[in-house]
């Protein structure tokens, strides 16, 4: 049995979570204030994931803020960035529009702003 100490990144509360692992498998999660913390801690021990936020060029020269609608594998963050920086999006764009579908697994890249 091993213990792992984590800081949850789901919200600014930043819960200090203790995960107990047995042969790489999560046995218990203690210290999370909400259910999101449990999911975060389990993922963090097996397959860490993060939401990627950035900006993308548009056809009118204005930067459009974008983000993934789900966390993507931490190991793939720079691949996601490459795809974002290789793309120019077409305006008009509404907040929440999918700009690149399935940018990583089932995560889509969406606009975090309306640009007319």
């Amino acid at each position: 049995m091993t213990e792992k100490l984590l800081t949850c990144v789901e919200c600014p509360r930043g819960c200090q979570i203790t995960v107990t692992l047995d042969d790489g498998k999560v046995v218990s999660v203690v210290g999370n204030f909400c259910p999101r913390g449990k999911v975060y801690a389990e993922n963090e021990c097996v397959n860490p994931k993060r939401v990627v936020t950035s900006t993308m060029n548009s056809d009118i020269g204005v930067l459009v803020p974008v983000r993934t609608d789900k966390p993507v594998l931490k190991a793939n963050i720079f691949d996601v960035m490459k795809k974002i920086n290789a793309t120019t999006c077409k305006t008009p764009i509404k907040l929440g529009d999918v700009i690149i579908a399935n940018i990583d697994g089932d995560a889509n890249l969406i606009a975090s702003k309306t640009v007319k």
Binding site: E10, C11, P12, V51, T53, S54, T55, P65, V66, R67, L95, S112, K113, T114
Partner: peptide, 22 residues
């Protein structure tokens, strides 16, 4: 502030800054 972490208390959603503003 294009990063996320906004709106968790108010909207129970993890929004980017421009989304919260909009």
């Amino acid at each position: 502030c294009v990063h996320n972490g906004f709106g968790l208390t108010r909207f129970k959603e993890n929004l980017a800054g421009p989304e919260y503003a909009e």
